Simulated scan of single mutants.
Amino acid sequence: MIESPTPALTAAEVEPLISVVLPIYNGEQYLAEAIDSVLSQTFANFELIMIDDGSTDDSQHILREYEKRDPRVRVVVRENRGLATTLNDAIDIARGTWIARMDQDDIALPHRFERQLEWLEQTGADICGSWVQRFGSSDKRVVRLPQTDDAIKMAMLFCSPFAHPAVIMRALLVKRLRYDKTWEKAEDYDLWERAAEAGWKMANVPEVLLSYRVHAEQISTLTANRQQQLTQDIRRRYGAFVSHSMRLNQRWIDEVLKISESSLSELDMDAVDAAFTELLQQSHGEARDVVFDHATRLYFRAAANCPNIVSRWSKLNREFGEGFKVATKLQLWLFRLLQVRADGALFKQLKRIYIWRASR
């Protein structure tokens, strides 16, 4: 008897290695460009899950057209439920071993997935991001994020160490932790913080794999204020974890984090110096570089409130920095002399020149 050949599986039936999660809300202006950048990846074994979260523009029509063209595309259209819920809904139906994030207005470079999978295998990480380059405005900076697990977990004390739309995460783990809608507007930072406490191994590919679009519709002043408050709450939560795990004085870390707030009254710089000294002593390699970089940024923020800020930073630099850094000392002195306050417009203008010029 001649056996009938086994029918070939369709693209929709093949178990994907990656599930790409792309939430949509009124994204018609840039949506096609974002989708095209995913579908043209050099690594092709993925599904693209796109949930339209109650859009009122033409996004749904665009999604349906792509659904007809490519069997890897899965589209869900429903009422608005918010970003965190939409991400969780997509994660729940994801079939891949890995969850890759993507936003409706960004562009993934063609080799993004291929390169990140290589990096995940090389490092054994549970989550992997990458550097990103901003575009769409005069801001064309490359955001260079820390590469190693130790450095990322140090950076998390001060800011989110990943570009959210550039990450790939182990599906089994993210399905357990999930996004928390209580922290919406900072739901990614909240997830990374909880993942760090849970012991996830973390990495960033030290090259640009995503173009991050900057445009006026991204965030309102009200949303920015809410995001800033949530971010500070997450910093404090992680600060307590770091203090306990590294056996540091909790009050010292609290004083460091206080510098990120708009009001810097009654700042204890002795505690700040002590905290950074301990953090630097217990860090090595890239992690130490990350701590020293953030220490320098925060000393600039504190300069107007601290008469001897230059000598304090110089002492830290002698022990843990590289070179004499005469320019940095001069800039700190200038910030102090001009009383450049962290919540003022002049600080925002100068920090791009003096502090964030090379990295943000």
Rank of each mutant, 00 (worst) to 15 (best):
A84Q: 05
A94F: 07
D150R: 11
T85R: 13
R112V: 00
F162K: 09
D92K: 14
I91V: 15
V143W: 12
W98Q: 07
V174T: 05
Q147N: 09
R112F: 01
L173H: 10
K181P: 09
D149H: 05
N88L: 08
R112S: 06
D180V: 01
V174C: 08
D92N: 06
P165A: 09
T86L: 04
W131Y: 13
E121G: 08
L173I: 03
A151I: 12
Q116N: 04
A155P: 08
F158A: 10
G136K: 03
F113D: 10
T86H: 01
M102S: 13
R134K: 12
W131I: 12
R134S: 04
W119D: 00
Q104W: 00
L120Q: 10
E118G: 00
R115Y: 07
P165F: 07
W131L: 12
V174H: 10
Q133A: 14
F158T: 08
F162W: 09
Y179Q: 12
E121Y: 02
L87C: 13
L177I: 15
W98G: 05
R141P: 01
D89Y: 03
V143I: 12
R101N: 02
G129W: 10
T123F: 04
R95F: 00
N88T: 02
K153C: 13
T123Y: 04
D149Y: 06
D105F: 00
D150I: 10
T182E: 08
L173S: 13
C159T: 11
I93G: 04
A163W: 09
H164K: 15
K175V: 05
G129N: 02
A155N: 03
H164N: 10
A94S: 15
C159P: 07
T148H: 00
V167I: 14
W131V: 14
W131M: 07
D103E: 10
S137Q: 07
I91Y: 05
L117I: 12
I127M: 15
A171L: 02
D106W: 13
R115F: 03
Q122S: 14
H111F: 06
A90S: 15
E118W: 00
K175T: 04
L145Q: 11
M102T: 08
S138R: 11
A108Y: 11
A151P: 12
W98V: 05
L109M: 06
I152D: 02
D89C: 11
Q147V: 05
C128F: 00
H164Q: 09
F158Y: 14
A166K: 03
R134M: 05
D139W: 11
D149V: 00
G129K: 13
A171T: 07
A171M: 08
S130A: 10
L157C: 02
D105Q: 06
Q104N: 04
C159S: 12
E121F: 05
V142I: 13
D149N: 12
A84M: 09
F162I: 13
Q116P: 06
I152V: 01
D139R: 06
D105R: 02
T86M: 04
N88G: 07
T97D: 09
P161F: 03
A151Q: 07
D92A: 15
M156N: 15
D89N: 09
M102C: 15
D92R: 15
Q104I: 04
A94G: 12
I93M: 14
A84T: 14
N88S: 09
K153L: 08
Y179N: 11
Q116M: 11
